[in-house]
Amino acid sequence: MVFLSVINWARCRGPDEFWRKRRVFRLAAHYIGRRRNCYSIAVRNVHRALVYATKARKLKKEDMKSLWDVRITAACEQHNITLFSLREGLDRANIMLDRKSLSDLASWEPKTFEALAAVAKYKLETDRFIDGQDKCHPTGINLNLKDVMLEAWLNEKKK
């Protein structure tokens, strides 16, 4: 009689050698040659594979991020805007789209992306966003520094 997964999991917990090895062999089932048949070789390769899998979970996210960036950059070039200014403009226009959605829109709905690029461009233009700065609003006006500082200045002990 062949026991399938559930009952095997229950018995895996024990210190029994057969089941301990079997757990490793299950993970090495798709390997070739002695890597799947000899325990001492299999366990080494399984360990290495698990390490790769752990690292790859992070790498996969980074790879996808760089791929989306390449795609969005390509789409931005078609509308004569850079990736940086697109993101800046969309952030200012309060359009919170991430890389994945932007790249999906760029390839599946190019007209939507064109509209987004136009929105970003127009927003930056109205903000006078030049060289990474707002040229029309000097910094400090928005911060209302005078309100913050006045009270502190009044409370300060004068000689």
Binding site: V70, R71, T73, A74, Q78, S103, A106, F113
Partner: peptide, 9 residues
């Protein structure tokens, strides 16, 4: 083909 938004290696 990196100038196309469908680029994939």
């Amino acid at each position: 083909g990196m100038h196309k938004p469908i680029y994939h290696p």
